[in-house]
């Protein structure tokens, strides 16, 4: 998909929910915008599992950033009450207690500030399948509408970089590609270790990873269209 600005105009007209209309109405940069001039927002969902049709979002973290700086002042994090009760296993992973989750609002109640924070910016995630599919599923079940947006996936960018480094010979010899997990990717750029599986901390980690990837693998003025999916 290259013509996201036009697509956003169509989606705005087609949307019923006022929050979605506003989100699409804020528009989207064109594919030829240099990355240095593109407003970005790193987004991370913590979920109860990997299957969007079965599992639910329990927290959302995001932080706006640019090619130059990550703006912690505008960082945000929300806990979300899942539609299904929490299983013991995922509680351990996220360190989020049942009582906190029980007190958290339903996603529909925080949809407005979340969409506002994303509006006008290109979403950056590590492993796009999670955020895209869970976001769509969550909206479909609550307001019966889907959401579409361009995504820069740091995992995809890392995959491309590793494939290039591996080269044809490496591929023929089936040399291992290297891990694509967020923490392992960060290590390649000497980025510090952050405790994983907290939505905001992962969002910040993702933003930093993209800055590192951009300064190593891309020219200063690479158009955003070469990066997003």
């Amino acid at each position: 998909m290259s013509d996201w600005p036009e697509r956003f105009q169509q989606l705005e007209t087609a949307a019923f929910d006022i929050r979605l209309q506003r989100y699409y109405g804020a528009g989207m940069v064109s594919a030829d915008t240099p990355i240095g001039e593109t407003p970005l927002v790193a987004l991370d969902f913590e979920t109860t599992g990997l299957d969007a049709s079965q599992d639910a979002i329990v927290s959302i973290g995001l932080v706006p950033f640019s090619r130059q700086r990550v703006f912690l002042r505008e960082a945000n994090e929300w806990l979300v009450k899942p539609e299904q009760p929490l299983e013991e296993e995922s509680v351990v992973i996220h360190g989020i207690t049942h009582s906190k989750i029980r007190a958290a609002p339903d996603l529909e109640l925080i949809l407005e500030p979340v969409l506002e924070a994303l509006a006008g910016k290109v979403v950056v995630v590590h492993h796009r399948a999670i955020e895209r599919s869970f976001f769509s599923q969550a909206l479909l079940s609550r307001i019966q509408e889907d959401i579409q947006f361009p995504v820069i996936d740091t995992m995809e960018l890392e995959y491309r970089a590793l494939r290039q480094r591996q080269g044809l010979i490496g591929r023929l010899l089936r040399r291992p590609l290297g891990s694509l997990r967020l923490g392992d990717c960060r290590q390649r750029y000497s980025l510090p270790y952050y405790p994983p599986h907290r939505a905001l901390s992962d969002a910040i980690a993702t933003a930093e990873l993209l800055l590192a990837q951009l300064s190593y693998q891309y020219r200063e003025d690479v158009p955003v269209g070469e990066l997003w999916l």
């Binding site: 703006f71 980025l191 300064s215």
Partner: peptide
């Protein structure tokens, strides 16, 4: 202080 912090990344030798 944490709220006001902005993060930047520089590769080696920049």
């Amino acid at each position: 202080l944490a709220q006001a912090t902005e993060i930047s990344y520089y590769r080696s030798g920049q």
